[in-house]
Amino acid sequence: MDEKKLLAFLKQSREILGDFFPADSLALLPVLFSSLVWAVTRRGEVKKKILEMKVWLEPDILRNKPAEFVLDFFKSSPELRSVYEQEIAAGDLRSLRPAFRALYPVLGLQDPFLQKLFADDLKNQDYRRLAAGFKPRLEAALSEIKAAGGRKKFWPTLEGICGEFLSLGWSLLGEDEVRELLKKAMEKI
């Protein structure tokens, strides 16, 4: 599929989903982006997963990591290292741990929904803003999804969009490629 077709597909999908979300929705594009990434990575076998937005936000990893792990997370990323330079040098875990809780799912686990939700902060490398706004922004997006999900046709519509996306041949690409293509295309719609 060429870029024009992808843009047309995304615009159409945004319009369709727009009926379920408020005009200035936080959640619409993250829902679309993450659903399409998941549809591709799971090779179409797992559309049901997309219908369970609540499940993937459940805390099932051990969130409490050793101090060395937290420090390594900040040190191993050049961008984070420069933003949190002082805290790292001082070993200030009191400041680093709360930031880690917000940044690790986004950057460490690369959750596609969170990456799209905080796309602006990531683009501007404004990690402090991301960490500070993580909880309220996520809660606001989830409440939008909850409201949309309460409407009868929302999930079948989203599933239909993923099905259409897969039928266009995207399952032949890897997750990296799909993420990058979608990211670039979504910036243009």
Partner: peptide, 14 residues
């Protein structure tokens, strides 16, 4: 779960 799998990979790298 996928996030457990990724967290475990991060542990291996760490």
């Amino acid at each position: 779960k996928l996030d457990l799998h990724r967290d475990n990979d991060n542990q291996i790298v760490f």
